[in-house]
Amino acid sequence: MTAPVKALMDQLARLGRSGVGVLEHLGRAHLLLLSILGGLGDLVRRPRLLLIQLFSVGVLSALIVAVSGTFVGMVLGLQGYYILSQFGAEQTLGVMVAASLVRELGPVVAALLFAGRAGSALTAEIGLMKATEQLSGLEMMAVDPIKRILTPRFAAGIISMPLLAAMFSALGVMGGYFVGVGLLGVDDGAFWSQMQAKIDTYDDVLNGVIKSLVFGLVCTWIALFQGYDADPTSVGVSRATTRTVVHSSLAVLGLDFILTALMFGE
């Protein structure tokens, strides 16, 4: 083989290797998801484990989600008012604020905050448990660490996410109301009635909830997989934590596009 052909073959081999690597990675992630789901039956008998995880995954993320939601709603109220008042349509401010929150910003921003707040913490926790042999230790105590450690966290993530997104949206609408009606003088009745007329419970609110369920699943799954698959060293855990935030954010934004196209496209 001549040198250029060999170099080309080397490149091809490298490409192939990384392709196989990615597939292997995805395969491991799916196997882990299966094992996690397999533990759900066990979880029913130990609700206490779920409760504790709902606390650290849900309750501890609630404050940042609530504060961000309020501010995002207030900004929407302000920006929306400036633009809509140019067309004399400030009556529809409520629609604009609520539609953008319920359909998009609620699920998406809450999921991004969740990935940064709870997802990174989950990865670091699991990664360190692996590094300090706690997971091995459980295995040697004849306790399945996936069932006992990962599954409750997974369930807590999926339960928390829609609730967090709903809080985000609801407080956002209140923030928009405060700025629009309270500060800028939009009519109180028009704000709510226009909103109620244009926002649909099934098309908008329910679809938002479905989106956030999907985001909750994906973010928690990524976080747990990264932690469980992390190199058991300090560098490994720190890299895995970064990867969790990056992968979750990209996954949320990409999935949001797909889900939006499926739900709201005609």
Binding site: Q134, S136, L138
Partner: peptide, 10 residues
């Protein structure tokens, strides 16, 4: 099994 680090749940 006694692990090197103890592997206690922290």
């Amino acid at each position: 099994m006694l692990f090197q680090t103890g592997a206690l749940l922290t």
